[in-house]
Design a binder for these strands. Structure first.
Lengths: 213, 213
DNA sequence: TAGATTGTTAATCGATTAACAATC
DNA sequence: TAGATTGTTAATCGATTAACAATC
C-alpha cells in the first residue's frame, strides 16, 4: 500500500467509471476531460484530477484522458475484472432481488449460493440457484473458498450468520440487515442500511415543511 | 435553519437511534452514556456528545442521557413520527422487495402506489397494492400530494421518470437506478447504487489478495 | 466529598478547492 | 505560437479528536 486512497475518493471512482462508460458508448471521441466529468457529476474538476492521480493514470495536458484507458484502469482498480463469488443468506424479498439482479456481473460479482433456514424455502429455485439449508453454509464456503458473504436476513439473525461466515473464512461481508455487526477479526464490512438511508429524505422533508408545527 | 447539522453527523443519528432502541428493549436502565454508544458503534465518545448537541438534547453530567428522551428526540429529528407517503416506479425484483418490506413503517415511510409500464405487470397485486399504469403517475402524485418518489426502474428510464415526478411536484427522490440524475430544480436526491457500493468490497479484496499478479 | 459524565473549546487531521506552472 | 488541459502545490474549509472545566 503506497499511498492509500481516501475513502471519499474511492467512492467517486465508480461514478467516473459510469460516466466514461456511457461517454464511450455515445460519443466517438478518444479523450475525455476532467471538466467534462465535472459537469456530469457536479464534482470539482481539480478534485477529479486529484482522484485520478491516486489510480495512477496519466492524462495529456491540453487533450484530456484517454477514455478507453481511463475506463479500463478504473475497472481494474475497482476490481471489476475479477470474478468475485459470493454466497447470500436470507432469501426473502431483498435476497431474491439481489440473487436475480443481472447488473452485478458487470462489477465482478457473482452470487453462487443461496441459504435460508426456512424449510418452505429450502430447495426452491431462485434465479437459477437452489436454496440450500443454512446448516451447509460453512461447508460450502470452505469447499469453494468463497470470499464474500451477503446477509439479507432479519436483523436478529445477522450477528450469528456473520460469525458463521467468519468461522468459515469469509473475507468480506455485505450486510443488509439493519444492525451494526460486532466483529473483532479483520473482516471488511460494507453496511447497506436502506431504512437508515431513508432518514436523509425523511429529515429533509421535515426540515423544509414545518407545516405541522 | 439555525446551525445546520453536518452530513456525517446526520448519518450517525440513525445509528444512535438503533442502539438506544435496542438498549431500551433489553435493559432496564433510565440513562445511557456517550461512552456506551461509543463502545457499540466504534465512534469517538466526544463526537457522539457533539452530534447530540446538534439535536439539542441535554444530558446529565455524571449520569448520562435519558434514554427514552434520547430515542424520541432522535426519532422526531429524523422524521420517524411523520407519515411519509411515497410512490414507487419500476416493479421489478428490487421494487417488489421494497414494496413488500415491512420495516419501513417504523421510519415513517409508507409506499402507497406502484407504477410500471409493462402491461404484464399492470394490475398485479404486489404487497397489498395494485400496480398502476405509469401513464397515471403524475395524476396520482398530484391528487394525493405525494412528496417522495422511489425509482427502481432500469437505468435508461430513470431520468425521464424523475422528470415526470418533478413535474408533478415531488419533493424528494430515492433513486435506485445506477445513474446520476440530471436535475436543476431544488429536489432532494438520495442515490442508492448497490452495484457501486459493491465496489468497496471488490477493491478491498483486490488489494488484500494480489495472488493473481 | 469524590467520581463520573457532560458540554465545549482548542488542536489536529484530512479533504476540498483555488491557483497556476508545466506541457502538448 | 496561442490555447487548453493536466499535474501539483498551497490555502481553505470542515470534521474529528483531545482535553478539561463544569456539574450533578
Amino acid at each position: 500500500m503506497v499511498k492509500k486512497i481516501p475513502k471519499p475518493s474511492l467512492a467517486r471512482l465508480p461514478k467516473y467509471y459510469q460516466v466514461v462508460t456511457s461517454y464511450l458508448n455515445r460519443k466517438n471521441e478518444k479523450y475525455i476531460s476532467s471538466s467534462y466529468l465535472s459537469d456530469c457529476l457536479n464534482i470539482d474538476d481539480s478534485q477529479i484530477r486529484r482522484d485520478l492521480m491516486y489510480i495512477e493514470i496519466g492524462g495529456i495536458p491540453r487533450v484530456g484522458y484517454d477514455a478507453k484507458e481511463l475506463r479500463d484502469v478504473l475497472a481494474d482498480y475497482l476490481g471489476y475484472f475479477n470474478l468475485n463469488e459470493a454466497i447470500l443468506v436470507g432469501v426473502g424479498n431483498l435476497g431474491t432481488a439481489l440473487a436475480e439482479y443481472k447488473g452485478f456481473e458487470r462489477y465482478g460479482l457473482s452470487i453462487v449460493g443461496l441459504f435460508d433456514s426456512d424449510p418452505e424455502k429450502i430447495g426452491n429455485l431462485v434465479g437459477n440457484l437452489k436454496v440450500d439449508n443454512i446448516e451447509n453454509l460453512e461447508q460450502v464456503i470452505k469447499k469453494f473458498n468463497i470470499k464474500i458473504g451477503i446477509i439479507t436476513t432479519p436483523a436478529r439473525y445477522a450477528q450469528q450468520i456473520a460469525e458463521k461466515m467468519i468461522k468459515a473464512n469469509i473475507k468480506a461481508i455485505w450486510n443488509f440487515a439493519p444492525v451494526t455487526l460486532d466483529i473483532d477479526e479483520d473482516i471488511f464490512i460494507q453496511d447497506e442500511n436502506l431504512a437508515e438511508n431513508f432518514s436523509f429524505i425523511s429529515h429533509y422533508l421535515k426540515e423544509t415543511e414545518p407545516e405541522k408545527e
